[in-house]
Design a binder for these strands. Structure first.
Lengths: 233, 233
DNA sequence: TAGATTGTTAATCGATTAACAATC
DNA sequence: TAGATTGTTAATCGATTAACAATC
């Protein structure tokens, strides 16, 4: 059963609000791994693949793989499996990676530079079209082919470019201020690599990417592993 | 009810195996955010804080905050809240961040260099003590104070250092080969920033950090937001 | 046909949310 | 005392896992 909320206003109009939270997020997070493997198989000339094989290669459960793939709408053939090119296309379309998503990058420090040079992004529909940095010596130059502008020029540059997404790789103490500027410049989605909880208007989407969250999980896994008695494989 | 598996061997010995999967992972991933905010409050001289306040500042539900904090074992006082320094200490201890965790970093390219200079890591108990790179011109130098060695010297160097953790920031095509070397050199935990599904022995812990997974979620959130009708705040 | 692999339906598991009594 | 905030217990929700009929 799907649920929707309906808002009724005084003037008699009504509004259908989609559920605010993204559903099936765990499945969505696994899709890029399927896509990567499928592209590999495609390059090697494989035309069909079974969910069982994908599960084995990716260290996942075979039932989970079948379940995940259903969200793309692709149907497999019993005894045969899935069509590799069909599945690739379906995942790309589902994730919106068939058409390039343009982004700004703000904060061309260590991490920002790394992301500007990250070759996986162009392969996954993300194109960083402009970067901004507070360091005036960086402005006017290019990093991996992306032009770098002075921080103060966000509004001016994006008035022209109309880019909807911004990648935030600035120091924590300026994160909120820069966010306000970006929102003012028409950005509606923020990929936040700072450890700051951003305050944004309701129409702006935020995706937090916390490296220390991953570190926390790693540390706990490690100590859980140390507590375990040694085992023989 | 907690569950444990017990393995019985032919020689009559038995083994108690802890559950393989890490439980309460969502709570664990949120703990660093609590810690960061608590440290801020501590610096400003706050001595107690309510769960309600933490929830508000971090954009979380207040009941969830209370639930999360229970895993640290700290009890709050009704009407008063939690002791800030006690909570800070408890989270640090729970995550093992009270004592430094040493790590190797393999692959001092863009992302590797960014992580070597990432100031959040020392604040969260992670100390990168040595880096490795296949580029011989990088070897022998230091990056942000960390010495860089030639890739071939992993086994030799770690025979001396005995570091249990490795951060993997190498190109995808060498990820598995480098992993085998690291495991051979005694590494028991891998923080994997490559898009490769690593094949490791059972005693080795892997934490995958997939940037494209985050991108997938961002893209879907964005399209979900576009589908929504405009709303008035 | 036989068997592998699929999609579907139900059961289990864990996390989030809600309700409420306890307490400073 | 009154009221804010807590911990606990139960209900809901969603994701994973299991069971099984369908099909090439």
């Amino acid at each position: 059963v799907k649920k929707f909320s309906i808002a009724l206003f005084m003037d008699g109009t009504a509004m259908l609000a989609m559920p605010a939270k993204l559903s099936k997020q765990p499945s969505i997070r696994r899709l890029p791994a399927y896509l990567g493997l499928l592209r590999q198989l495609h390059d090697r000339g494989c035309d069909t693949v079974s969910g069982v094989y994908l599960a084995e290669r990716l260290g996942l459960d075979k039932v989970q793989v079948r379940k995940d793939l259903t969200i793309t709408g692709v149907m497999g053939k019993p005894r045969v499996g899935f069509s590799v090119p069909v599945l690739i296309h379906a995942i790309e379309c589902f994730l919106g990676w068939d058409q390039a998503l343009e982004a700004l990058l703000v904060g061309a420090g260590n991490l920002g530079t790394a992301l500007l040079g990250y070759t996986e992004f162009p392969r996954h529909g993300l194109r960083i079209v402009a970067a901004f940095d507070s360091d005036p010596t960086r402005a006017g130059r290019e990093i991996y082919g992306t032009p770098v502008f002075a921080m103060g020029r966000i509004a001016e540059v994006n008035a022209r470019l109309r880019v909807p997404v911004a990648i935030l790789t600035v120091p924590a103490d300026v994160a909120q201020r820069v966010t306000d500027q970006l929102v003012g410049a028409g950005v509606t989605a923020l990929w936040n690599f700072t450890p700051v909880t951003l305050d944004v208007p309701a129409h702006v989407v935020v995706q937090n990417e916390s490296l220390v969250a991953g570190l926390a999980v790693l540390t706990k896994k490690l100590c859980l592993d140390e507590c375990r008695l040694p085992h023989n494989d």
